[in-house]
Write a protein that binds this DNA or RNA. Structure first.
Lengths: 76, 76
DNA sequence: ACATTAGGTATGATATATCATACCTGATGT
DNA sequence: ACATCAGGTATGATATATCATACCTAATGT
């Protein structure tokens, strides 16, 4: 798996879980004190996000950090 | 688990796996094209490492990225 | 005594993640 | 027609991850 693919996977997981919880990007931003100008490219896998940021996001989504790295959510 | 603790955990996992493979920090640096001035604080959990860097490191150690997040290696 | 190696720190430079603001589009609602 | 909201892009500022170099200590080897 290529680096970019990993970042895209992480972004998709964030986006999927956020939507599953019925949250908008703005609401997620409130919860983890982050800007959408940063969250949107993270969900797209366009930027090389830091672990600290992923920790903030996973806390805001009340999930374990590991869940952001799982690769096949029933091959959606 | 606090943010800093997560980074320390990741660093300890890197350090442990590197040593298990008999690699020095310099050798790991060769493999993932990184400086020890960056690798050492990462192993200490002192800097907010990026996912891209963790991907490079996990490739150099021929492990899956997820392995860097496991929390209890027989509670060492 | 000297050289080498491993881990480690200090510091200045460079790249880039993140913030802050502004603006755009399409959808939804009144 | 207008307002609002969601996702999205552009851009300049700020913080900081990473690099590059230099230096230190302790251990090991000759």
């Amino acid at each position: 798996m290529k680096d970019e693919e990993y970042l895209i996977l992480i972004g998709k997981n964030i986006s999927r879980i956020r939507k599953e919880q019925g949250l908008t990007i703005k609401e997620l931003g409130y919860r983890c004190d982050m800007e959408k100008t940063n969250l949107i490219p993270i969900e797209k896998g366009r930027i090389n996000v830091t672990v600290g940021t992923l920790i903030k996001i996973s806390k805001a989504l009340t999930i374990d950090l590991k869940e952001l790295f799982i690769s096949d959510v029933s091959s959606s």
